[in-house]
Design a protein around this nucleic acid. Structure first.
Lengths: 336, 336
DNA sequence: CTGTTAGCGCATTCAC
DNA sequence: GTGAATGCGCTAACAG
């Protein structure tokens, strides 16, 4: 069962293939009557334009590639939704690839997307080395990096201002009267972890002359990591009245640790998370956390990519996404 | 800056384009020496095969289309990951489209995917009407439907056995000694809601001669819906000792309602959810729930699609996914 | 084992 | 306003 092509319609309508093409693409240079007639025939025959052939002829696919570590992670799911919606609104399709933070899978995905001749490429939290990324950036445009720095004049960059997020969280806790605030710092290698540490230190130093190093504890970025690190921290520094967590899962782990250590949240220990994943609003007490507008981030990322696809922009303006604090029930004034 | 093509390599190597094609596709019929020589040149020139041209020539794209209501929903995210991983393992790419349960968006997505000439199409929880779906199924193969029934000899179907899931949950509660078990039934129109009701009734009737209708309450499928419905149910039938919830969010809402009504979970009221989204393990008490293996479901869906892409299977065997109960801390024996 | 010819389905460029 | 010729980059089918 062969699919109907432009030629079938041309024959049926008694015109040339070219005229059919014009009718379908609504390019003006055609009489309204013949256009309508052709469109009717196309409809009747169940014609579906072949994007593959069109792409080959025009050298543009109207497809973009999106590479993320894991769409099942709500953070990336939000970004993906923002990108998808923006793309589809402008009649572009998106290839989605998951890497599980595996460099080989990421490389393979990128090669595949290059082969697909996508009109643009978005890499989230890329694990490629700097040289690899530079090489890619030289070869492939337009390219937008989310959550990853690069020094390349033609590459778009979208970053979350994690320093600011942590700063806001700490300022809020300071304002409530907390002074002895611990940090569940996340994985030592994490880029955003470092930024959040920086924000923590900067904000703390406005009120506390010397912030003890033993108020910080690295941890795996899941619930169990947070629980273990919080237990350790509360043992080492029992006078802490508040904890800032690397992310919401870590914060939930910290809440568990508090329960185990016989501390009430927020009375005996305030807890603030980061990211504001859907879970955060649903735990009890509901988590105060630094919200990152992932959907909006995705939309703006796609918007930047579209801009770059249009003109050959030389120095695309970096986009910095500002997180903001969402105050719920896991934080309050210190008792003492 | 033109991309390097097969011809560039052919010229460089002093062979025909066809020979280059053979070398790249590793089709055997070529001497190892020339193949290696060509591959080296390709590598040096930074050649990337053009999948678009290849697709046009072979009439196969090695791409598949995946349409879901929302990847940000963990249920579909799990399925999407399973599909993606299976697809990529077999060197296929996937176009992802979100519909937000909007029929127009779904229709548009399908048309776009048809235009892309995807080799296969997967529709999750399609909102198309039966006639629309029949029409699509007649026109487009291979097609696999997830979470949606259809009577069409050439369409693949993957379903979750929700009757069984609810049955297992109720059997477990009965075994614990519960007899007065309420059902937070979800949206009346929901397909899976009806199936779960059926499972509930069937299992209940093995131990309870007449299951009162006022032990059931419909609800919106979110936390607040579950909370409101549970409050109503506990008011109307205060002697209930356990609740089965339409999904995990509803179950979390029910947990809230219990707290508000002064009931402890699980002592004064056991609660069992459905789906086992990541949240379920993280709330306190951790939720006993009916686990649906979404990732596996995705993998098997893709596997079915691959089978259908291979041969022209006439009556693809329906795949029925069996959920199973995961016992955590929100359920226990009744006190009375 | 290798080369030649002929398309895949469409859009671009030029005629008319 | 419409048509004819040409090519996008690759592979299928044949020939040698």
């Amino acid at each position: 069962m062969r699919r109907v092509t432009i030629k079938d319609i041309a024959r049926e309508a008694g015109v040339s293939a070219q005229t059919v093409s014009r009718a379908i693409n609504d390019k003006g240079e055609i009489s309204p009557q013949t256009q309508e007639r052709i469109l009717l025939i196309a409809e009747r025959l169940g014609y579906r334009p072949n994007s593959v052939a069109r792409s080959l002829a025009t050298r543009r696919t109207q497809n973009i590639g999106l590479v993320v570590p894991d769409v099942a992670n709500p953070f990336f799911a939000g970004i993906a939704r923002g990108i998808e919606d923006a793309a589809h609104q402008s009649d572009h399709n998106v290839f989605l690839c998951n890497t599980d933070e595996n460099v080989d899978r990421e490389t393979k995905a990128i090669h595949s997307l290059e082969a697909q001749r996508v009109d643009g490429l978005i890499l989230c939290s890329s694990r490629l080395s700097d040289p690899q990324l530079q090489k890619l950036a030289n070869r492939y445009q337009p390219l937008v990096l989310v959550n990853r720095q690069i020094d390349h004049s033609q590459t778009g960059v979208v970053l979350v201002d994690d320093v600011r997020g942590a700063t806001e969280a700490i300022r809020y806790l300071l304002q409530l009267g907390h002074r002895r605030i611990g940090l569940l710092a996340g994985p030592p290698a994490s880029h955003s972890g470092k930024a959040r540490l920086q924000g923590y230190l900067g904000a703390m130093q406005t009120q506390v002359s010397k912030v003890p190093a033993h108020w910080q504890e690295p941890c795996a970025p899941q619930v169990e990591g947070g629980r273990a690190a919080a237990l350790e921290l509360l043992r080492r520094a029992p006078d802490l009245t508040a904890l800032l967590a690397y992310n919401d899962l870590v914060a939930v782990g910290a809440m568990r640790a508090c329960v185990e250590a016989g501390r009430r949240v927020p009375e005996d220990c305030a807890i603030v998370g980061c990211d504001d994943v859907p879970l955060a609003a649903l735990v009890s007490p509901a988590l105060t956390t630094v919200h990152i507008p992932t959907y909006n981030l995705g939309q703006r990322t796609m918007s930047l990519l579209f801009d770059m696809m249009g003109d050959d922009i030389d120095h695309p303006e970096p986009i910095i996404i500002s997180p903001h604090l969402v105050i719920r029930d896991s934080s309050g004034q210190p008792i003492a």
